[in-house]
Structures are given as C-alpha cells and as structure tokens.
Simulated assay, not measured.
Amino acid sequence: MTLHNDPLAALGVSRETIQRLEALVALMGKWNPAINLVSKSTLADAWSRHILDSAQIYRLAPPGPLHWADLGSGGGFPGLVVAVLGAELQPGSRFTLVDSDQRKATFLRQSCQTLGLKAQVLAERIDAIAPLNADVLSARALAPLTLLCGFAQRHLSARGTALFMKGASHASELAEARGQWAFEVDIHPSVTEAGAVILQLKGLPHG
C-alpha cells in the first residue's frame, strides 16, 4: 500500500505510459515462474511493490537528457520502470541495464522490445564492463553500500548522482560506507515501504 503520494501522479505521466507499465507487470507475471524475477509473494501487489517503488526515484534525477545506468536490473526494477518514464518525460535520455544473469538479461531485452524502449542491456559483471560514465546510477537491493560506492567510482560521471534504494538497515550501511568513502548524501524516505529510503549520493571519487 502506498504510504504517501502516488509517484506517477506526481510526475504527471500520460495514460500511454501507465499502459506501458501495466504491460511490464503482465510481462513479469508471465516470465516469473520460469526465472524467478521477483519473490512470488509480491506478485499480487506488484504495482505498489515494484512499479511505484521504482518510479519514486525518477524525481530525484537531474533534469535534461542524461545517461541513466541501472545495476543489477534483474526483474527490471528500477531500470525498466525509469526507462518507461524517461521515454515520455526525457526522450533524449538513454538507459543502460546491467545484469550478469543471462536469463534475466533475455527478459530485459524482450521487455524493451515489447515496450518499445531504446535501452541497452549488458549481460556482464558490473566490475568487468567498461566504465559507463553515467549521469545517474541506480540499484535496488543489489549489494552493501560500500560495494555500491565502488561501482559508482567506476561507472558514475564526475558530477553524477547515485540513487541507491535501501531498507531499514540503511543507517548502519551508511556508517560503514563513510568509513571507506567520501560523499554527500541526501536521505529520502520511501513512499511505498515504511523504514526504507532512497540514498542520493553525490561527490563520490571518480575514476
């Protein structure tokens, strides 16, 4: 259940974009039994647990055309959702979805084709691909923050923004990461899950 405002209403997206997101839910339901994209228990509430949860980070991205890279895209969250939103709201933007699982990468590619998205899918390890120089780097339930900061150092542009979705343990992860990395952080409460946050990081070491 949404705790605050509907992110999609706040973004003012069109009915066409809503329909694309509904089609994504249908694709997820079709593929999930075979490759376990998300926990089966979340499928009944997929709109809130996955679509709205992912959509809320879009408002934190800088304005204008940009390169958005999503790490560990897996079932498409938040990567496919922000790519759908970007197709309407920032059509000059490009999106890169990274997941080393070949089956999940196939799902991501098929979804991009079905939804009409011009997103690149890389089925490789995050630490093995060439630096992406992304303006925005996102990840959802992927790895501890210390490891995510290392990914950001490699793949985020010098003035880029990292948007990492974290659960109730974010405070301890922040404390540990600050012992190893220098960065600025804004903490945004999740609108879909009590205790969860989006960590908006800037000023991370580059290169």
Rank of each mutant, 00 (worst) to 15 (best):
P144L: 10
P144C: 08
P144T: 03
L145Y: 07
L145K: 06
L145D: 10
T146L: 12
T146P: 02
T146I: 14
L147W: 03
L147H: 09
L147G: 00
L147R: 15
L147K: 06
L147I: 14
L147C: 11
L148S: 06
L148K: 02
L148F: 14
C149S: 01
C149A: 14
C149W: 06
C149Y: 05
G150W: 02
G150S: 09
G150L: 13
G150H: 08
F151T: 07
F151I: 10
F151V: 12
F151N: 10
A152I: 11
Q153H: 06
Q153T: 01
Q153E: 15
Q153P: 00
R154M: 06
R154D: 04
H155N: 10
H155V: 11
H155C: 11
H155E: 08
L156K: 07
L156S: 03
L156M: 04
L156W: 08
L156T: 10
L156Y: 08
L156E: 02
L156R: 11
S157Q: 13
S157Y: 00
S157L: 02
S157G: 14
S157N: 12
A158S: 13
A158F: 00
A158I: 05
R159N: 13
R159S: 15
R159D: 15
R159E: 14
G160C: 05
T161M: 09
T161I: 11
T161C: 13
A162K: 04
A162F: 12
L163V: 05
L163H: 01
L163N: 08
L163T: 00
L163M: 06
L163G: 07
F164E: 04
F164Q: 08
F164I: 14
F164L: 14
M165F: 11
M165D: 01
M165A: 14
M165Q: 13
M165R: 01
M165H: 10
M165V: 01
K166M: 11
K166G: 07
K166I: 09
K166C: 12
A168G: 12
A168F: 00
S169H: 13
S169G: 14
S169R: 15
S169C: 11
S169Q: 13
S169K: 15
S169D: 15
H170C: 07
H170S: 10
A171T: 12
A171Y: 02
A171S: 11
S172L: 09
E173I: 00
E173D: 10
E173G: 10
E173R: 08
E173T: 05
E173H: 00
L174A: 05
L174M: 13
L174G: 04
L174S: 02
L174N: 10
A175R: 07
A175H: 09
A175T: 13
A175F: 00
A175Y: 01
